[in-house]
């Protein structure tokens, strides 16, 4: 029994929505970073589902563009998380907090 690509698309959309909602609602920077990862992985899942859909449609050869894209995105996400956590550490050293509510010195 195989899962049809459309279900995977729906799951990815759901993950993306959870990530986006968390990005706007949560105030802890670490959790916000996790939400961004969730959105990136939703994109990965969509790439894989799309590849699977193309493979099922044409059949001759597996479509590898999606998986390759996903591997690159995983690397990018790791690099981005490294920079993000470095910024959070710099923030914590200056202000002893990781809550976005306390990061509001800059405003109109």
């Amino acid at each position: 029994m195989s899962v049809p690509p459309s279900h995977i698309f729906l799951l990815a959309a759901l993950l993306f929505a959870i990530g986006a909602a968390g990005f706007f609602l949560r105030r802890n920077v670490i959790v916000v970073l996790m939400c961004i990862e969730l959105m990136l992985n939703a994109a990965n899942l969509t790439f894989l589902a799309a590849s699977r859909m193309h493979t099922l449609a044409h059949g001759a050869r597996p479509d590898l563009q999606g998986p390759i894209f996903a591997i690159f995105v995983i690397v990018i996400a790791a690099v981005e998380a490294a920079v993000g956590l470095a910024l959070v550490i710099a923030l914590y050293r200056n202000k002893q907090t990781v809550s976005l509510d306390d990061v509001a010195d800059l405003k109109d």
Binding site: F9, A12, F16, G19, A20, F23, V29, V32, L33, I36, M39, L40, A42, A43, N44, T46, F47, A49, A50, M53, Q65, G66, F69, V73, I76, E80, V83, G84, L87, V88, A90, L91, N94, K95, V103, D105, L106
Partner: peptide, 27 residues
Amino acid sequence: GEGALKFYLVGATSLAITLFGLSLVFG
């Protein structure tokens, strides 16, 4: 530090949104 964090959060989200859009285009 605060300016950089805001820039980073927006930039990283913008990447995630762009990627999700591009994955749909690829699909």
